[in-house]
């Protein structure tokens, strides 16, 4: 029982912006989220679709200006195979490797994951932890939006309806270390119960600590209290205790079909503690 809404298939960004300006369209990347919605059972099916698949200018991975740039239409499979991603954003590689299985990774894109804006989106905590910047384009030109402000509410983004996500910029930072942990229900094809991504430097005190979680709130979030508990502190058991305590005080996860609030809270603390101990 699928609807088949009209679809525009632009060959250039200009053409895409023109179509977006003419009428509301829902942009389509690899389809792995949108096609599920064509039944209309999981919320309204799109009225009109803008198929971005032919916009090769939105593909590709490169290192430029001190940042790793990943085009919005880059697939999870391409990220998994990328040496540049492995070198500068191993947590991104780890995250996309947990999305679906080969079939999904061959079609699903980082732009799609970002714009789907699911609180369980696996790459989103990584982008938060790595201080990524999301570059959007539209009739008014390009603009850059920090990941930390990109998902203001449940399943929404900072983009205007006539804008498209063009690429993700991840600054390359000397000495930055990063870690990723997903807790799902099974070993493949699982939506997360808790996702943790973190980045930091050590000198040897904790510096530039970023701790981000998915699936524990209505949006992917930074655990700012836990970050603050660590920032500048020595890597001791006491600082880890303070960070975990701060985390447990700031998270407010919920019960849902996938897990319980109690489990999410307890396990968030446990995996953060483990990560920090391993990093000490």
């Amino acid at each position: 029982m699928h609807v088949e809404p009209p679809v525009g298939s632009p060959r250039s960004l200009e053409e895409a912006y023109g179509l977006l300006a003419s009428a509301p369209h829902r942009p389509l990347a690899g389809g792995t989220d949108m096609l599920v919605q064509l039944t209309g059972e999981l919320g309204p099916a799109p009225e009109r679709v803008l198929d971005l698949w032919r916009l090769d200018e939105l593909r590709g991975i490169r290192v430029e200006g001190g940042a790793l740039e990943v085009g919005a239409l880059t697939t999870h499979a391409q990220i998994r195979r990328s040496e540049a991603c492995a070198a500068h954003a191993p947590t991104l590689v780890a995250a996309v490797a947990t999305i679906g299985a080969a079939q999904i990774q061959n079609r699903g894109t980082i732009g799609g994951n970002v714009m789907n804006a699911s609180p369980a989106g696996d790459t989103l905590p990584v982008l938060l932890a790595l201080d990524a910047v999301l570059v959007a384009g539209g009739p008014r030109g390009e603009r850059s939006i920090p990941a930390v402000g990109f998902w203001p509410a449940y399943r929404s983004t900072a983009l205007a309806p006539d804008e498209l996500l063009l690429r993700v910029r991840i600054p390359i930072v000397d000495g930055r270390r990063q870690a990723f942990r997903k807790v799902g229900t099974r070993r493949a094809q699982a939506i997360s119960k808790v996702v943790l991504a973190a980045a930091w430097r050590r000198d040897p005190a904790w510096r530039d600590v970023r701790i981000a979680f998915g699936s524990v709130a209505a949006t992917p979030i930074r655990a700012t209290a836990a970050e603050a508990a660590l920032e500048g502190a020595p890597p001791t058991a006491a600082s880890i205790d303070r960070a975990v305590a701060a985390l447990l005080a700031e998270l407010r996860p919920i019960d849902d079909v996938r897990s319980t609030a109690a489990y999410r809270l307890e396990v968030s603390g446990r995996i953060l503690r483990r990560l920090l101990e391993d990093a000490s």
Binding site: L28, T32, D51, I104, N106, R107
Partner: peptide
């Protein structure tokens, strides 16, 4: 490999 139910 793709899942043909998700490819328009």
């Amino acid at each position: 490999v793709v899942v043909s139910c998700l490819v328009p």
